[in-house]
Design a protein around this nucleic acid. Structure first.
Lengths: 200, 200
DNA sequence: TTGAAAAGAGACAGGTCTGTCTACATACTT
DNA sequence: AAGTATGTAGACAGACCTGTCTCTTTTCAA
C-alpha cells in the first residue's frame, strides 16, 4: 500500500509501466511541485515519454487528469497517515501522535504544503470537489478517533484539531517545519488535555 | 485610510483616475478573485480601460504588477485590522477581539482566503517575498500585543495564535465562515487563558 | 493468424499568453 | 512655442496552451 513518505512523493525513475500509469505518476509529481496551472499537458507528455494520443485516450481533458491526481493523492496521503500511526495502542495515543507524524511530513523532501489547500487556492470556486472532500474525510477520521477516545464532544474536538492541522501545514509551507512544530505541539496538547472525557 | 472591508474589496466603479491606479485596482480585484496565473494581462488591460503601452509604462512586467498588488493588499489588510480593533481598551482586549474581527472578514462578500497564502500556494518557491513578509509583520504585530499584555513568552503565544489564524483562514475558505468560527474562538480563548502573565 | 486495442510520433488548429512596436492625441512645463 | 509626460488604439511577434487528427507500429488474445 502507500505507507512511506517516498510513496507520497511518488516513484522515482519509472520502470516499464503502461502509459496511463506513467502519465499519472508524472502529473502527480509535477502538479504537486509546480501547481496545476503552471504544469502544462505538453510537459507531462514530454516527461512521461508518452504519445499525445495515448494521453488523451486515458484522460479526455486536463481536468480529468487533475481529478485523477487528487484522487491518488488523497488515497496515498490517508494511507500514509494510517500506516504512520498504526503503532498507536489506542485512539488517545493515535491523536496524541498526530503532531509528530505531521512534523515528519513537513520535513519530507519536496514538501510544498497540502495539495488540496493549494489546489483549492489556485482554482477557487472551480476547484475539484476532492479538494474539500479530502478535508472532510480527514475530519471524519479524526472525529472517529475522538469518539473512540470517549471525548464528550468528538465533533468539536475534531474541528479544533483540524483547524490546528491546517494552520500548521500553512506555517510549515511558508516558513518551514521548525515554525510549525512547537506551536502545533503546544496547542494540540492543550486541546487534547482540555477535552472532556466520559469515563464509561 | 483603508479601514473598511469595502476597501479590502477595492473600489467599485472606477472614476476618472490615472492609468496606473485603474490598472492596479483592476488587478487587485482580479488577482484576488481568480488568482495570479488565471488573470492575464490582456484582461486587466481590457477591464481597466487602459492602453497596452500605458500599462507597460507603469509596470514593466506582470511580476511587477503582482508585487504592487501584494504590497497594496498588505497595506490595506493591516490597515483594516488596526481600524477594526482600534476600539480595544488594551492589548489583552485587542487580542481577545481578534477572532471576531477575523470572522467579519470571513463573512465579507467575495472572501476567498488570504491573498498571501493563495499566492504562495500558487507560485511556490518563486512566490514574491511579500507573501512571507506579510505573515511576519502580522506575527510581529501580534507578538507586540502579547508583550504589551505582559505575557511571559510573547513569541510563543504569538506563534500559537498565528497558527490558529492560518488554520481558520483555510477552514473558512474551504468550508465557509461557520466552519471556522467556533473552533477558532474556542482554541483562541484557550491559548490566551493558558498564557502566563507577569503581574509586574 | 487475424483482428482489435493500445501505443508511438508528430503535424496541426485555434486560442491565449506576455511583451514590443508604431502612430497619434493630449496636457503640462519650461 | 517647444518639448516632455502621459495617454489611446491596435498591430504584431513568438511562445505556450489544450485538444484533434493521421499514420504507423506493437501487443495480445481469440
Amino acid at each position: 500500500m502507500f505507507t512511506s513518505l517516498d510513496d507520497l512523493a511518488g516513484p522515482g525513475p519509472l520502470p516499464e509501466q503502461d502509459a496511463r500509469t506513467r502519465v499519472l505518476e508524472c502529473a502527480y509529481r509535477l502538479f504537486y511541485r509546480h501547481g496545476l496551472r503552471a504544469t502544462g499537458i505538453d510537459r507531462i507528455i514530454a516527461e512521461s515519454g508518452v504519445a499525445k494520443a495515448s494521453f488523451y485516450r486515458h484522460f479526455p481533458t486536463k481536468q480529468a487528469l487533475v481529478e485523477a491526481y487528487l484522487d491518488l493523492r488523497h488515497a496515498r496521503w490517508m494511507g500514509w497517515l494510517e500506516s504512520r500511526l498504526a503503532g498507536a495502542p489506542d485512539a488517545a495515543a493515535w491523536l496524541a501522535a498526530l503532531p509528530d507524524a505531521l512534523d515528519d511530513w513537513f520535513r519530507a523532501p519536496g514538501f510544498r504544503g497540502c495539495a488540496f489547500i493549494n489546489g483549492h487556492a489556485e482554482a477557487g470556486t472551480d476547484a475539484p470537489p476532492m479538494t474539500v472532500t479530502h478535508k472532510r474525510e480527514l475530519a471524519a477520521r479524526i472525529e472517529a478517533a475522538c469518539r473512540e477516545a470517549d471525548f464528550v464532544r468528538p465533533d468539536e474536538v475534531a474541528a479544533d484539531l483540524l483547524l490546528l492541522i491546517e494552520g500548521a501545514i500553512v506555517r510549515a509551507q511558508m516558513e518551514g517545519a521548525d515554525a510549525a512544530r512547537a506551536p502545533l505541539a503546544r496547542v494540540f496538547a492543550r486541546v487534547l488535555a482540555g477535552a472532556e472525557r466520559a469515563y464509561v
